[in-house]
Amino acid sequence: MTLQEIIDRLNLTVLTEKKDFTAITPSGVYASDLLSCVMAGAHRRGLWITLQSHVNIVAVAALLDLSAVIITEGSTPEPDVIQKANREEVTLLLTPAPTYTVAGKLWELGLREG
């Protein structure tokens, strides 16, 4: 499933610059709010679900070359976080839904850990 389909099906807001999301197919999904867990557990080119919108998430996403970060609970990042994400070419997506629901819906769509 492409990132564009995921964005459409979950009605996600794209916070960073638009890319050709139809060309991106996430390798899997990881949910955690603890950066150390994400560093250890998330797959390269995967999707990361978290309610953290701290600037550190951009660094972790860039380091792991993640397809996108889905920020939950409408936890809108500050403008400088979005700017940094654009510089690092990290895609940030936003939803008002909690992590539990986002994980549930992605699982329902057939996505797996990777």
Binding site: A31, L51, E78, A97, T101, K105, E108
Partner: peptide, 28 residues
């Protein structure tokens, strides 16, 4: 993982908890 556990429980119809009215926006 958290993703799989949430996914399976959501699919088994365990509803999501609702945020309290007036609760602060999370970490921003």
């Amino acid at each position: 993982t958290m993703f799989e556990a949430c996914g399976r429980l959501y699919m088994a119809n365990l509803p999501s908890a609702v945020r309290f009215a007036g609760a602060p926006p999370p970490d921003c």
